[in-house]
Nucleic acid binder design. Sequence first.
DNA 1: TCTGGGGTCCTAGGACCC
DNA 2: TCTGGGGTCCTAGGACCC
Length: 435
Amino acid sequence: MYALVDCNSFYANCEKLFRPDLRGKAVVVLSNNDGCVVARSSEAKQLGLKMGVPYFQVKEFCEKNDVTVFSSNYTLYVDMSHRVMSTLEKLCPTVEVYSIDEAFLYLADYPTAMTDLDSYGRKLKSIVEQYTGIPVCVGMGSTKTMAKLANYAAKKHPATKGVCVLDNLRWIRRIMQITDVGEVWGVGRRYKVRLNKMGIHTVYQLSICEPAKIRQHFGVVLERTCLELNGQSCLGIEAVEAKKQIISSRSFSTRISCPDELSQAVCSHAAKAASKLRKQDSVCHYLSVFAKNSPFSKTESYISISGQCQFITPTADTRVMVAAARQILMQIFVEDIRYAKAGVMLFDICQHDEVQPDLFAEDSNDNKQCTQSAKSAEVIAVMDQLNKRYGQNSNQQSAVFIASEGIKDKQSWQMSRDMLSPCYTTNINQIPKVD
DNA sequence: TCTGGGGTCCTAGGACCC
DNA sequence: TCTGGGGTCCTAGGACCC
């Protein structure tokens, strides 16, 4: 038996938490650069605001309807997420944090939960809400896909009061019959269209399909989904593993054509990606750089430039990676493009102690390479320590950084976050005050 | 004027091996 | 004139997730 605990309108409720004046009011949170609506409070959903809609299209609507709008404040959401997850970890021995706002709990080995699933689910819900202030819904089922379905039902149907247990066949069939197949975990927009064409519209209809037939048409992934809907568990609790690829990228608040500005952006992304890489004790073999103009422009054709390089000795050294990124950008740069976004990707990642040394490295006999890499590791470690200790300034710039990243204060293209809330829980200067 | 930023897995097809 | 059978590895692209 699995439970899925999912926070309701997570970002929107994080924003509401420290703003009692917004109780009962519509709140939306925007993506980076204040681009799209990515979270809506229940009141905002009732007003008909859609997920993913560009903000400029609904800005006027929000003003007219007294909707409070926030730029995304990831520092706040990540901290609140930790609080929710650590609360769950106190309540169940096996927790898989699946995303910033949801976690799977494995209940089969946990007798306390199994004796009365419904009351255990309600206990989870009320304790998380009491400890963190974040409302959640709980779904339970014999597989992860069923727990997802149960969670959807708990959110959708008020009669469940936020907790839904799918443990008897009649009830399971009923829920499946009234739920659209597009709501199933693993069925996206494309698959929904194709399933509809085959006459499959409800979850129930998918569940009674011959799994082999589903495999034939859609592949092994959806076949597993189909099996999971029949109670055959194909997905287990997964441990946290090191990332196999790392990306750092951002859109600019204004278009860029100047190579120096683009280079500063790319260098910052290289530095950020390198830092992420070190946090998981990894090194990488390949680094790629990309930049593109807006795919939405009606007057310009969509152009994307990219290039990559290989490190003979895999690395996580910021200086090496920033230099490589700069060099790639110089090779691929095209003039007269209004660049809207740039980024750096790292591939072929492995743990730093699993590195295969270079057979043809110069002076391998007297171990020059080792000495050098040890020195480089020392320098970077000092940099990381300083940055950890002194954190970032108000422009999100680290205490110690590579000069070619430029000074963020002076970069007019840095992403805009015009409606940013305070970091209530992580910055002592921004802690909420009670008058 | 203004449209996010991460990730994962699977498959098909080509290159290449013996 | 006729040209096998079995395998691996890599990459690009497509689907999905939040």
